[in-house]
Design a protein around this nucleic acid. Sequence first.
DNA 1: AGCACA
Length: 445
Amino acid sequence: MASVSSQPQFRYTQPPSKVLHLRNLPWECTEEELIELGKPFGKVVNTKCNVGANRNQAFIEFADLNQAIAMISYYASSSEPAQVRGKTVYLQYSNRQEIVNNKTTADVAGNVLLVTIEGADARLVSIDVLHLVFSAFGFVHKITTFEKTAGFQALVQFSDTETASSAKNALDGRSIPRYLLPEHVGPCALRITYSAHTDLSVKFQSHRSRDYTNPYLPVAPSAIDGSGQLTVGLDGKKLEAESNVLLASIENMQYAVTLDVLHMVFSAFGPVQKIAMFDKNGGVQALIQYPDVQTAVVAKEALEGHCIYDGGFCKLHISYSRHTDLSIKVNNDRSRDYTIPNTPMVNSQPSILRQQPVSAMGPTVQYNGAPYTPTQEQQQPGMPQTSAGWGPGVPPMPQSMPMQMHSNPYMPPGTMPPQGMMQSPIQSGLPQSSMLPPYGSGHMQ
DNA sequence: AGCACA
C-alpha cells in the first residue's frame, strides 16, 4: 500500500481484488513466469499477459482474495521488488474482480502464427524473407500476408503447435536479421501471437500468399501476362520460367563486348551452343543457349549482376529467355552456332584481343559459382554433359588447362590468334580464385 | 511504470 500511495498521480488506493495488475514486465513475459511470481502467495487460477499497447502489462488472478492481498502486502514492505527476468515489476490490485476473456486466440497455442511486421519498411519485407525466417524452426506449410490496421501482417502455418511455439518464442519481439533484408529496408520487428486458424486457405501462389506443401498450385492470374508467361514472381518481383536460353543485357558497356567475350564468359558454366547478339533499347543484348536448363540456371545465378570488366564496366543482367532453341542462320560477329562446325563464317576475327581498351585488362567476371572447366567431350556437340569438373572443390586454376585449340572444330584454320595474345589478357588476369575461371583455350576464337 | 479485441 505504501508503494501505491507514494505516487501522487496514482495515489488512490485500489480496492482489493483477487486480480492483480502488473506493469513494467518484459514483454516476452510468459504465463508460466506470471504463475511463478504468484505461486508463493496462493493459487494462481488465471493470468493474462502481453496486455496493453506495449504488451508489458499482465494480470494475475488468485483463487482467493487473501492470496492477492498477501502478495501486495509482501511486496509493499519488501526491500526486494517483484521481478521477472531481473526486471522490476510493479503490481497493484486490478480495478476488475476477475480476469475476463483470458484465453483469446492470441493466447491459445496453435500451429498457425499471426505475425505483425513492425517498422516503417514492414511492407517491403517479402514473403520469401518471412519464409526463410520461420523455416529455421520447421517446415512452413503456408504463409498468407495481408494489410490490416495493425499494419503488415502474416499468418504462418506450421505442422504443429510445438513447432509454431518454438518459432514464436524465438522470434517474438526480435527483428528480422539485417542480412536478410535489402539494404534500403529499415529494421523490421516481429510481433507474434497465435492465430485461431489451423489450416490456411491458399488458392494461388502469389506475392501475397504461398502454399509450400503444393508446388503445383496455380500461380495467381495477376502474376501471369496475356501470353501465359509468368511475369511476376511469387515474391512480387519479375520472374520468368527457367530456360536453357539466357537473355543477357549489358549495362555500362564501356568496352566492346564481343561474341567471343560472351562465349568465353558463359562457357565457364557449360558448353555454349549458340549465341545471338542484337541491339535493344540502345544497348546490347544477347541470347545464350545452353544444352540444358540446369546449366543456364547456374550461369545465371553466378553471373547476374556481375561485371565483365573491373570497375563496373559491362555489367550483366541476365534473365531467362522464352526461347529454347535459337535459330542461327549465319555465323558472324553477332551470332554463332557452335554446334555446327561447318556453318559459314563471316567476319569471325577474334575481336576481344584487338579491342581491349587497356592492354592488360581481361574479363574479370566475379561470381560465386563453381567454375566449369570445359573438357574435350563437353565440347562435342550432342554429347551429354557430364558433371565432371563441377563442384565447389574444383580449383579455379587447374594445374593443366586443357589445350585443345588444335581440335576446336569451330575454328577455321588460320584464324587462330597467336598463343601469346591468347594467354595475356585472360590467364594473366586470373591471380585470384574469385576471378574468372579458366576458359579452355579452345573456346576462344 | 498505470487496467484487458482496439
